[in-house]
Design a binder for these strands. Structure first.
Length: 348
DNA sequence: AACTTATGCAACCGCACCATT
DNA sequence: TAATGGTGCGGTTGCATAAGT
């Protein structure tokens, strides 16, 4: 067990130990304990160590027997959950990054609440964490907008306002990083404009759980050029699920299907995902050369409710390009909120 | 400072699916 | 083929803490 892992485990354990000291016995379902002598509720230091040590020596799997053999008075399910969501050394902790937020929004728009599937594309993040993020952050904003998180209106808001803003913030951070690196004498690539492109393919009207083929989502970093060809761009050409070259397994044997670099945007300023052969559809995407977003005429004709919002928000771009821990918390100003709510009320 | 409310998140639950017996 | 056990998923709960009054 390496030191980092130990550190993580110990900090985790310390947290839980304090937690348990406050509500130890009461947190246990007494009746169940009498019935089958199984513990429930928060894990203790000793339990964590038992589980970690056992898995280090014997590996994971067959969780019910693992729980017994390790001397844990827990269900196999509980052990599995504790390991996967918390003790596993490759669990990534800390705030969800802008890139991860963007990816979650994108993947959720196509897969719905299929958290484990979404989590497969965010290395180190668990389905539980992503689910919690969605429920606490995204649904909060749906509530603020007084619309259902599954409604077309909210989906459009995400796609045409929220996600482009995320991209611009990522872009701003990347530019800032490049500037810093450059001033430090580092050899850096030319800072490209980052363009978020989603191949909608009826996304304006897609069903909540509608499946999209994986070659239909694209993140591209370009030089403000968008000709429908990727040939001059340096992005990863691998699909999350059908790439024979991109597939991989992580150290713990989970089914990560792409190397993390495919989705770790800041590493190379290429947060490009997927190969895309539908080049003739690019004109349907939301893209403008200066990285502001406009609606393609075709989509305007389809009745997008948010025509003109971009222009308004460009006037206020500094509002959300500034600092802030969570783009979701400062993404709207009062004008935005008023405007969006007007649009939503008009649509009802 | 005390109290209330909101938020974040670990953990649990029920269900479905699959493999094995 | 049915029963059983293991696994994984999505939804929900409950507690600690933060934020607000």
């Amino acid at each position: 067990m390496d030191q980092d892992f130990k550190g993580i485990v110990m900090s985790t354990i310390t947290h839980d130990y304090n937690y348990n000291n406050q509500s130890d016995d009461s947190s246990i379902d007494q009746e169940d304990q009498l019935m089958d002598d199984l513990r429930r509720g928060p894990w203790t230091v000793e339990e964590d160590l038992l589980l970690v040590n056992y898995i280090a020596n014997h590996g994971e799997g067959r969780w019910n027997s693992l729980a017994r053999c390790a001397g844990l008075k827990r269900t196999g399910k509980s052990c599995r959950l504790r390991w996967l969501n918390y003790l596993r050394p490759d669990v990534r902790r800390g705030n969800i990054t802008l890139e991860e937020q963007l990816l979650i929004l994108e993947l959720h728009s196509r897969w719905g609440n299929r958290w484990s599937k979404i989590a497969q594309h965010l290395p180190g993040r668990t389905d539980n964490e992503i689910k919690n993020y969605w429920r606490t952050r995204v649904q909060k904003h749906a509530k603020q907008l007084q619309c259902d998180v599954n409604s077309k209106q909210f989906k459009d808001t995400m796609r045409y306002l929220w996600m482009p803003r995320l991209v611009e913030r990522i872009q701003a951070e990347a530019a800032s990083t490049a500037t810093t690196a450059s001033s430090n004498g580092a050899k850096v690539a030319t800072a490209n404009s980052t363009n978020y492109m989603n191949q909608p393919n009826n996304t304006m009207n897609n069903g909540y759980n509608q499946e999209f083929s994986d070659d239909q989502y694209i993140f591209q970093t370009s030089n403000n050029e968008f000709s429908g060809s990727f040939n001059n761009q340096s992005f990863v050409t691998a699909t999350p699920e059908n790439s024979s070259t991109g597939g991989s397994s992580d150290s713990m044997g989970s089914n990560t299907q792409l190397s993390s670099d495919c989705y770790s945007f800041p590493h190379s300023n290429t947060y490009n995902i997927a190969q895309n052969t539908h080049t003739n559809n690019y004109s349907e995407t939301l893209f403008s050369p200066n990285s502001n977003y406009y609606y393609h005429q075709q989509q305007q004709q389809q009745g997008s409710e948010f025509q003109g919002i971009d222009q308004q928000q460009n006037n206020n771009s500094n509002m959300w390009l500034g600092g802030g821990e969570d783009v979701l918390d400062n993404i709207w100003n009062s004008d935005d909120m008023w405007f969006i709510q007007q649009q939503l009320s008009n649509d009802l």
